[in-house]
């Protein structure tokens, strides 16, 4: 791994700047007046009770929904209302709450599909099998295997994605997102459905990804052990509004946050 232990000199600079973001569905304000600032290299958590609007925010950030109000700046570039593909090219990749893999494709092709915009050759190159085709495909194979190795999926590279057990499917989803070389990686409940052992491993993987792939991570999670274990900062969402924002420890011990989670 060439990227291992590379110190990120840009750490601390503002990466994501979300300003007064809002969207309503019919009469329901799903997200209202949402602000979020994430610095480069941070591991940021987005938590809140069910239905608080967490996944909606992910969908707004990735262009699945267009916001009614507000602005999203990624690394100084305005990405508000851009289509998902463009936003991915600008540098946001994500995973999904309910796993969305290319289930009929081999594990390695799931990652190679994500390398699509970084390793290019034309349709003519593909059909006439030019040297460029072989060279690029070889480079793609190597890169994909390198990424799969990080997630300990390299031994399953030729399996169909749907043949993997649940925990490894989650890992493959993260691997696929990482392959697009995102500046910001969004993880939607990465530990959902995992046992404590798997969750523990996942925490290590997430930290490793942040440290070695030169990326910033924003994650949604209900597992408080994971959140308190790896997130440096938190935003708590309740009924589409920010309830509390700040350092993890302070936020989790805030009386208002405890009330939102446990009730009166």
């Amino acid at each position: 791994m060439s990227e291992v232990n590379k110190t990120n000199t840009q750490n601390g600079k503002l990466l994501l700047d979300v300003d007064t973001l809002g969207i309503s569905f019919g009469g329901l304000k799903a997200v209202d007046n949402f602000n979020l600032k994430i610095s480069k290299g941070e591991l940021y958590g987005l938590i809140g009770p069910n239905g608080a609007g967490k996944t909606t925010i992910f969908n707004l950030l990735t262009g699945v929904y267009k916001p009614d109000t507000g602005k999203i700046l990624l690394d100084g570039v305005d990405i508000t209302g851009k289509p998902t593909i463009e936003i991915n090219k600008e540098g946001i990749a994500r995973t999904f709450q309910n796993i969305r893999l290319f289930s009929d494709l081999p594990v390695i092709d799931n990652v190679k599909a994500a390398l699509h915009n970084h390793y290019k050759y034309s349709l003519a190159d593909a059909i006439f099998r030019t040297p460029k085709y072989f060279k690029t495909e070889k480079a793609m194979d190597e890169k994909a295997m390198e990424i799969l190795k990080v997630f300990e999926l390299d031994n399953a590279a030729s399996y169909k994605a749907s043949q993997l057990p649940y925990g490894r499917q989650r890992k493959l989803e993260i691997a696929r997102a990482i392959a697009t070389e995102p500046k910001l990686l969004l993880l939607d409940e990465p530990a959902a459905g995992m046992n404590p052992q798997e969750t523990h491993e996942l925490m290590d993987t997430i930290k490793f990804v942040r440290d070695n792939f030169n990326t910033t991570i924003l994650l949604i999670e209900h597992d408080m052990k994971l959140v308190s274990g790896i997130c440096e900062k938190l935003t708590v969402l309740n009924f589409g509004r920010v309830l509390k924002q700040g350092e993890t420890y302070e936020v989790l011990h805030d009386p208002e946050v405890i009330k939102a989670y446990l009730g009166d």
Partner: peptide, 19 residues
């Protein structure tokens, strides 16, 4: 071809990785 099959398998995920 991979892009075409990825879109077949999961359109939303395919868009999320820039296809």
């Amino acid at each position: 071809g991979r892009a075409i099959m990825a879109i077949r398998d999961n359109r939303i995920a395919a868009e999320s990785i820039g296809l």
